[in-house]
């Protein structure tokens, strides 16, 4: 089973931010999409899962395997999740009064899985990434620190066992030990279950713990370079300057339409900032 992102375009209303991204993630592969602020990283994550506030303007995101390809963009978010796509959020938000076990049990039940397993699985997964068990009974993310929330996302990944996981800035807020624990857990999923991973990150720090097979550099909504792990080292040393075009509208990208944004808009502005 492969996750095929094919000429994906989209953004926020009135403004296309992702301008034709294509990449294919196979089972067990770890791909990293790296880019500076405003490159479209979070938009990419939002488009893949159908987050409110984002709209797809073109392209396709498919699961391809033995049978007919499954077009995920035709599905509502919850069915994309049921099809095997997971998003670890950059800023996991609080859902007051809704416990982790209730949320995941509802997801299990909707997918025809046995929800009675969820409690025990959560405890196991919490132990694996050092997420305190007492947090499992709390309403989702309520009064958790940034780092605890990231561990919580990883706990959920472990319980839900998706086929593909999008990790949006998974390292932010994590100290070295926590990052290592999270990375080990994700890595185990890739080797043991063939989880395909799309790591979305500004910094290469996460890649020192979670080895990526493929690095893609994102700039202004497009992948401007792809390569192996060495590309991450280069970015670490040099930054993104060489991938930032000098001229605002002269990015060489044959076959791609120019941005639809008005010239006065700041193309680097974070639409969610």
């Amino acid at each position: 089973m492969r996750l095929v992102i094919d000429q994906l375009r989209g953004g926020v209303p009135e403004r296309e931010i992702v301008q034709g991204i294509s990449l294919t993630i196979g089972p067990g592969e770890v791909h990293a999409v790296m880019g500076p602020n405003g490159a479209g990283k979070s938009t990419l994550a939002g488009l893949l899962l159908g987050r409110p506030g984002y709209a797809v303007t073109g392209g396709s995101v498919r699961l391809e395997g033995e049978g007919d390809p499954l077009e995920l963009l035709d599905l509502p978010t919850w069915q994309r999740a049921q099809a095997g796509l997971f998003l670890a959020m950059q800023k996991p938000l609080e859902v007051p009064g809704v416990s982790l076990v209730d949320a995941l049990s509802a997801g299990f039940a909707a997918g025809g899985r046995d929800p009675s397993q969820v409690g025990a699985r959560l405890a196991e997964e919490a132990d694996r990434v050092g997420f305190e068990r007492r947090f499992l009974d709390r309403p989702l993310n309520v009064d958790l620190s940034g780092g605890e929330r990231k561990r919580n996302e990883t706990v959920q990944l472990g319980v839900l066992q998706p086929r593909f996981a999008v990790l949006d800035e998974i390292d932010s807020g994590l100290d070295v030990d926590a990052l290592r624990a999270v990375a080990r857990r994700v890595e185990a999923e890739t080797t043991e279950r063939g989880l395909g991973v799309l790591v979305i990150t500004h910094f290469s720090r996460v890649l020192t713990e979670l080895q990526a097979d493929h690095i893609h550099v994102l700039s202004r909504g497009r992948i401007v370079a792809s390569g192996g792990p060495e590309l991450a080292h280069q970015l670490e040393a040099e930054g993104y300057a060489r991938y930032e075009p000098d001229d605002q509208d002269a990015l060489p990208a044959p076959g791609l339409a120019p941005p639809v944004s008005a010239p006065d808009d700041d193309p680097f502005a974070d639409p969610l900032a």
Partner: peptide, 9 residues
């Protein structure tokens, strides 16, 4: 959305 992203209708 957060709950939907966990497979909850």
């Amino acid at each position: 959305f957060y709950l939907e992203a966990r497979g909850v209708p």
